[in-house]
Amino acid sequence: MSAPTIPGTPAPHTATGGSRTHAGTTSGRVRSTLIWVGTNVLHLWPLALVVLVWDLWIVLNNYTALVAARPWDAFADILTHPGEYLYDTWFTMMMSVGGLLLGTVVGSLCAILVWWSAALSGIVTPAALIMRSVPISALIPIIARIFGYESDSTVFVCIVIICFFPSFVFVLSGLVSIPAAGRDLFTVLGAGKAQVLMRLGLLHSVPNLMISVRITAPIAVMAAILAEYLIGNHGLGEMFSYARSYQQWDRAWGTAVIATVLSVAIFLSARWCERKVTDRVT
């Protein structure tokens, strides 16, 4: 019987092509990396448009530096005072990523509970919908009352609340759409519900989970900055609030630029992870 080849898998006994093959592989990798970078840079055109519109808005309205900073002034502040931005950027990033991860875990656990039991579904689903329906700005005073004003925990809880709902919806959607053939197979194999969940449902839901992470990642940054702005002690939101109070417009707009870059970077990282993980499990 002839053994068909596996695409993308080297044949076990294929002789290597020596240095030419190696060079070809390296140049191929460089080319594909350049294409990847080029494609992703091109995808950032909306950011360039924002910068252009921002500058035009100031120039056409004849606004002075006392009203708003031009993009170049904000960029200059970032480049000349990187240390001023570093800690708060790091803080906001860690809060965003941490809140995103914990929110995703909480949402996934809620989805598993709802999938597992109709009784638990009756408890968890309404609570999730209420949490989602109430604007986070309305929840922040309540959360702050519980966890304390000017507390980092309050900021973190706000991010978790924002992030948990998408993963709840997407993971639940993955669990309820387990293919009938897979479900039948596990039934015939004598698997219990826990086995179906652990060996089939969770991994089947991973692509959905990664979609939720991708779409939630920028929202996590937004939630972090909003919470920091309103009640935080650290982070880009608090930095923006401080700079605005003292009319340091270069710093305030520089903070906005950093927040935008951070949000895009987290989104691109999440998209990269989504592609890698989804490719592995599908």
Binding site: A181, G182, D184, V188, L189, G190, R199, L200, V281
Partner: peptide, 28 residues
């Protein structure tokens, strides 16, 4: 665990290798 079934749709686990897919009944 005394039934063996193969459907028209193979129902292989896409994240598992050939060996792991064949080993699945043992694990279950």
């Amino acid at each position: 665990h005394r039934l063996g079934v193969a459907f028209q749709e193979h129902a292989l686990l896409p994240w598992a290798s050939v060996s792991s897919n064949i080993s699945l009944p043992y694990k279950v």
